[in-house]
């Protein structure tokens, strides 16, 4: 899944820009005239991964749709910090839905556009729906599944920070095992989320055999932009699931946001791949493999695993889960061959 040929320049293609590359080969974010879909003045925490991920994704979508884009947004952090009425940071046509019905609202917008196009009243306009993991994997899941099975012409983007962060860090069905939240066992020796619960929605989206499903993180901008651009070139239901670290909910330093996203991918905890019509067609390989501790130890939500008596067994289970991802998605080069 090479997003562009590797140029052996100072930094290759890992950085946002590269003065040695042709402008057409640079990232959307490197452009001095990028949309800045989510503008300054929003009230996200310092180092917010979701604010960053949303700008990355929507700027890329705006670029692909040549500025003709409407976004429906579920209730959640992203909506709360960006749009306390009457202010908004959004620089695009944007509608706030209920917590649970964003996919349905987006479906409606897409249907309306289809009719208006048919009547010759407007040209092509693309539709994006977006929400956090709570609005996507829990509350909005029925509407989402419906949008998938009808193959509505909507790109749904889920920003996954693993919990209900703006209401005080409650557990969602995307909270990873062993992570502590306000609503997982508040006392006792094992305050983390239980193993064997929750769900991985990208796999469920694949089961709908929709045209395109992908995962991404805020640590790999080029990969993220490649996937959004590719998804925008496809008609029908598409789903992109972006891991966005949350300094508040994860108990991490604000400058570590991108590092944590990178470690989630490099450990295998979060597999980065793409799938078409239900089949995995590409994976972003691990570049420098790390043990899961490298990821866990930087977050206070896992601090209970590293007390005076480290929870060796729990850590081993998390490592086993990461190893399983590596096997399942072929995240290491030699395993792919």
């Amino acid at each position: 899944m090479s997003f562009q040929p590797v140029h052996f320049y100072q930094t290759g293609t890992f950085t946002v820009g590269n003065r040695l590359l042709e402008p057409s080969e640079r990232s959307v974010q490197a452009n001095i005239q990028r949309t800045n879909s989510l503008n300054s003045g929003h009230r996200a925490c310092q180092g917010c991964g979701e604010a960053l991920g949303a700008r990355y994704a929507i700027d890329a979508a705006m670029n692909a749709a040549r500025g003709r884009l409407i976004a429906a947004n579920a209730t959640g952090c992203l909506e709360v910090f960006s749009t306390p009425y009457p202010e908004t940071s959004w620089q695009i046509p944007w509608i706030h839905s209920l917590f649970g019905n964003t996919a349905a609202v987006a479906t409606g917008i897409a249907a309306a556009i289809k009719v208006k196009k048919h009547k010759g009243e407007m040209g092509d306009v693309r539709v994006v729906a977006q929400g956090g993991d709570g609005g996507t994997t829990d509350i909005g899941f029925g509407c989402l599944s419906g949008m998938f099975e009808r193959n509505d012409d909507v790109l749904y983007i889920c920003y996954d920070n693993g919990g209900y962060m703006n209401t005080g860090v409650q557990r969602s069905s995307a909270t990873p095992p062993a992570a502590r939240t306000a609503t997982t066992m508040p006392v006792g020796p094992e305050p983390g989320n239980q193993f064997g619960q929750g769900k991985f929605v990208p796999a469920i989206a694949m089961a709908h055999e929709i045209p395109y499903v992908a995962t991404a993180t805020v640590a790999d901008l080029r990969d993220l932009e490649y996937k959004v651009t590719k998804a925008m070139g496809i008609r029908g239901a598409r789903y992109i699931h972006i891991l966005v670290p949350c300094p508040l909910g994860w108990g991490a330093a604000s400058e570590d946001t991108i590092l944590l996203a990178r470690l989630a991918k490099e450990t295998g905890i979060f597999p980065v791949f793409e799938a078409e019509n239900g089949e995995v067609t590409g994976t972003l390989k691990i570049r420098r493999k790390q043990p899961v501790e490298a990821y866990l130890q930087r977050q206070k939500r896992y601090a209970h695993l590293f007390g005076k008596k480290p929870a060796v067994e729990t850590i081993a289970r998390l490592q086993a889960a990461a190893d399983k991802n590596i096997r399942k998605y072929g995240l290491l080069d030699q395993e792919a061959n």
Partner: peptide
């Protein structure tokens, strides 16, 4: 060396290129 990383990674668009 103008790699644009700071410009890209700022969640607040607070870097002017």
């Amino acid at each position: 060396f103008e790699c644009d990383n700071c410009y890209g990674v700022c969640p607040d668009n607070a870097v002017i290129k």
